[in-house]
Write a protein that binds this DNA or RNA. Structure first.
Length: 518
RNA sequence: GGCGCAUUGGUGUAGUUGGUUAACACGCCGCCCUCUCAAGGCGGAGAUCACGAGUUCGAGUCUCGUAUGCGCUACCA
């Protein structure tokens, strides 16, 4: 049977890092094995699910490049009738029963503590099969239901025995039936299907063969297997993914960690999808030492290669190398420091994005992304794809060498495309204000630069150095002053590259303008 | 409380069937290069492989225990 996997997010918020990683792993597995990748929106929690979340999740997936679903998107809420029918069938077959116990309200905020407290109070001798309605006769059950008495439907779990399955990541998992309660399939209110029932029925109807999801579902898998068995359906292969934690081993959550866990943050911050995928893939998965070694050599001859290419893997390389067997069991920490602007997100993600921006992506691949960024910032001009195309490409290729995100093209790089750039105060202080003579030197240098022929690297450099010699100042003084004059910054590419990129007229103009800042 | 899972330098990881000085990447520090900042080159600090026993001639690698963290335990998903 061909492989079918699904990503099944519940639309109760934006697509966060952990969910994105789950989607990626499902997608990689499908694509590496010629399987089908499906999407199911688990919108059964009417209270929390929103259309906005659904849209946001879909957007996130499409940004990552994972939106090539092989079949129509399934909305779980549309299948409620089928879920209900399945549960009722189990009741008819005696594999589930009606529970007429009135619904117990639970205090939502500290539900976990509530559970622990109740368990403690109950001691360790809880009988999971003590429900009085478990053994109610079929006739009486029917009669009370017919009389309009509200009931929930619970699965009838065997008293004795053990549940067992082989997780593709965590290995053999066993759990005693005595530890599993007769779980509720349908809630009494409107016979609404509950999560465990819905996932199973949908996975059966979608013919899912491999369930790849977060480790937080590991223990509950036993319950779901019980439902598969009761329904007489084949049990799929399960592969649980290690959780992604926040620094300090705490759970990564929207509530406490805010926007850094949201994928849209990275899209909006100018990250490149392929780099994010690459980073995410390495959170909980890694190629084998052999695969790494293979990527370091070419053919049978060992060649000098940058060792980092081992971790830098394009999407197609990820597909090629991916396997369930190489997924880790231990949770990964997503490293960041909320108090340090330089470290607002994981160092390695930042590095990786820069690596894609400068080296991994070809200029042709990068250009459309830069264009989109410039359009958003109102800096795009049609001539960049027409008469100024060559200049534009050369300039992008020049400045990308020290950028980290796409945002830098319109931030630090603004001066290359517009005249309304800002002068960095510390750059002005350091490179302009420190030397009063620059007030006269800069306009004079402008004169000189203006007449350079041809206006290229060698000539501008020669002109500037000659000018420095004549006026008795160090070339470095003029170079650094020019950098700030032309770009507003104290850092950037080699100055003569900047002269050429900015162009003769603008360069001269900016040199004269900068004299006023001295 | 019960059950489950995990534990290699700050972070992500490698570590073949147990075998000499635990490897790589990010980050950090220094030097070189240099018109600045990156990049790049070179070098460095940083791990008694959570802890304690056991098996063994020999354990990061096998067994047990402890600790810590996380997950599940709901008529949430």
């Amino acid at each position: 049977m061909s492989i079918r996997v699904r990503f099944a997010p519940s639309p109760t918020g934006y697509l966060h890092i952990g969910a994105a990683r789950t989607a990626l792993f499902n997608w990689l597995y499908a694509r590496s094995r010629g399987g089908k990748f499906l999407l199911r929106v688990e919108d059964t929690d009417l209270q929390r699910s929103t259309e906005e979340s659904t849209r946001s999740i879909l957007d996130g997936l499409s940004w990552l490049g994972l939106a090539d679903y092989d079949e129509e998107i399934v909305f779980q809420s549309h299948n409620a009738d089928a879920h209900r029918a399945a549960a009722l069938r189990l009741v008819a077959e005696g594999k589930a029963y009606r529970d007429f116990t009135p619904k117990q309200e639970r205090s939502d905020p500290n539900i976990k503590q509530d559970i622990a407290a109740r368990a403690r109070a109950a001691g360790d001798t809880v009988d999971q099969r003590s429900n009085p309605f478990r053994e109610l006769s079929q006739e009486e059950s029917e009669a009370r239901a017919a009389a309009g008495e509200p009931f929930a439907v619970r699965l009838k779990v065997a008293r004795e025995g053990r549940s067992r399955f082989e997780d593709a990541v965590y290995g053999t998992q066993e759990r005693d039936y005595s530890e599993i309660e007769d779980l509720v399939l349908l809630r009494s209110e409107g016979l609404q299907p509950l999560y465990n029932l819905s996932v199973v029925v949908d996975d059966i109807s979608m013919s899912v063969t491999h369930v790849i999801r977060g480790q937080d579902h590991l223990t509950n898998t036993h319950k779901q297997i019980l439902i598969y068995e009761a329904l007489g359906a084949p049990v799929p292969t399960f592969a649980h993914l290690p959780l992604i934690l926040a620094p300090g081993g705490k759970k990564l959550s929207k509530r406490t960690h805010g926007e850094i866990v949201s994928l849209t943050t990275y899209r909006d911050a100018g990250f490149i999808p392929a780099a994010v995928c690459n980073f995410l893939a390495l959170l909980g998965w890694s190629p084998s030492g052999e695969q790494l070694a293979a990527s370091l050599t070419s053919g049978n001859e060992a060649v000098e290669v940058d060792p980092r290419v081992g971790e830098l893997m394009t999407v197609s390389e990820l597909i090629e190398n991916f396997s369930l067997e190489r997924i880790h069991r231990n949770p990964a920490t997503f490293n960041f420091d909320a108090n340090n602007p330089k470290r607002w997100t994981d160092d390695k993600l930042l590095w990786m994005n820069a690596e894609y921006l400068r080296n991994v992506l070809s200029l042709e691949e990068l250009l459309p992304m830069v264009k989109a960024e410039m359009e958003a910032a109102g800096l795009w001009r049609e001539e960049y794809e027409a008469e100024r195309r060559e200049w534009f490409e050369r300039t992008i290729d020049l400045i990308r060498q020290r950028f980290y995100t796409l945002k830098d093209f319109t931030g630090q790089g603004r001066a290359y495309f517009a005249d309304d750039f800002e002068y960095d105060a510390s750059a002005v202080a350091k490179n302009l204000k420190k030397e009063p003579r620059l007030r006269e030197l800069l306009p004079a240098l402008a004169e000189r630069i203006e007449r350079v022929e041809p206006f290229d690297l060698a000539s501008t450099e020669a002109a500037l150095r000659a000018f420095a010699e004549e006026t008795g100042v160090k070339a470095g003084l003029l170079i650094n002053a020019s950098r700030t004059a032309l770009t507003g910054q104290s850092v950037g590419p080699s100055m003569f590259d900047v002269f050429v990129a900015v162009g003769r007229e603008r360069a001269a103009h900016r040199l004269r303008e900068a004299a006023r800042l001295v």
